[in-house]
């Protein structure tokens, strides 16, 4: 199995695109084995932050350290190799079955190359079988084992979200980044997903950084919360302290008023 969870330290990360500042000197720390929420109104920079952590974007300034290793500047597949896995806000699955997707998550843990796969060498066959068993266990853990051999296309939205999380878990990560795991779900599905996330932490002992809009869920699940607004960190602390923070209330009230305006317009 993989090494124990470690600390993620984000230090003064700034991201600029063509003059626009998407993240402005954002710092926070995710304690080992904790569930840490990253919240904020739309456009606050949460997804940009995820993209920096997973290596999809490069930070203009600042640094990200995981387990003492500098992540900024590393290619995404190297960051994956260190044990950082993520899901996407809009589900990004590849064609094929659930099993195909989960096995993609095992890519970094397996070694079969082109030649040994093409010739079906016993080593490659054994490796595939062994990892498939583990992938099935993970599918079972997330309640999608019944769909294991089915194509992902026709699955329900909630199930596809679960496939994405299962695929990330198949990487046996030490840090899991979840981008809006319950967006678009009904209340029952939300509760089930919250229970799943809590179970992932309890059983695997990994750290989870979660971007979420559902405040109820954030307050129930998270050990710590970081709040972003317009690319800046405006609050950081326990769910209770953040909930009472005047800056956070102002940011969220502002957004609610805007939403009401939009709805009445």
């Amino acid at each position: 199995m993989t090494a124990a969870a470690a600390e993620l330290r984000v230090d003064g990360v700034t991201v600029r695109f063509a003059g626009l500042t998407a993240l402005d000197e954002v710092s926070f720390t995710v304690a080992p084995g904790s569930i840490h929420a990253l919240i904020g109104p739309n456009g606050a920079g949460k997804s940009t932050c995820f993209n920096v952590l997973s290596g999809v974007y490069r930070a203009t300034e600042g640094s990200v350290h995981y387990d003492g290793r500098e992540l900024t500047g590393l290619a995404p597949h190297r960051i994956a190799g260190i044990g950082v896995a993520r899901t996407f806000q809009n589900i990004v699955l590849t064609a094929g079955t659930v099993a195909d997707n989960l096995m993609l998550g095992r890519h970094g843990l397996t070694t079969a190359g082109f030649a040994s796969t093409a010739l079906r060498l016993p080593k490659a066959v054994r490796e595939q079988r062994r990892h498939r068993e583990r992938a099935y266990e993970i599918a079972d853990f997330l309640g999608i084992a019944a769909h294991f051999e089915q194509p992902v296309g026709p699955l329900s939205y909630g199930d596809r979200k679960r496939v994405e999380i299962a695929r990330a878990l198949c990487m046996e990560p030490r840090l899991l980044l979840l981008d809006e795991p319950v967006a678009g779900m009904n209340p029952t599905e939300r509760l089930a997903m919250a229970a799943t996330i809590a179970a992932v932490r309890a059983e695997l002992g990994i750290s989870i950084l979660i971007v979420e809009h559902d405040m109820g869920m954030v307050m129930r699940l998270a050990d710590a919360v970081t709040v972003l607004d317009f690319g800046r960190r405006i609050a950081d602390g326990t769910p209770e302290s953040v909930q009472r923070d005047p800056a956070v209330i102002a940011a969220y009230l502002g957004q609610q008023q805007e939403q009401q305006k939009e709805e009445s317009a």
Binding site: G55, A80, T94, A124
Partner: peptide, 22 residues
């Protein structure tokens, strides 16, 4: 096998493939 899945992922989403370690 493993290479085929990685190649399919590169086609379907370059970003997802890279984040999965490809």
């Amino acid at each position: 096998g493993r290479p085929g899945r990685a190649l399919g992922a590169v086609r379907d989403s370059e970003v997802a493939a890279a984040v999965m370690g490809v």
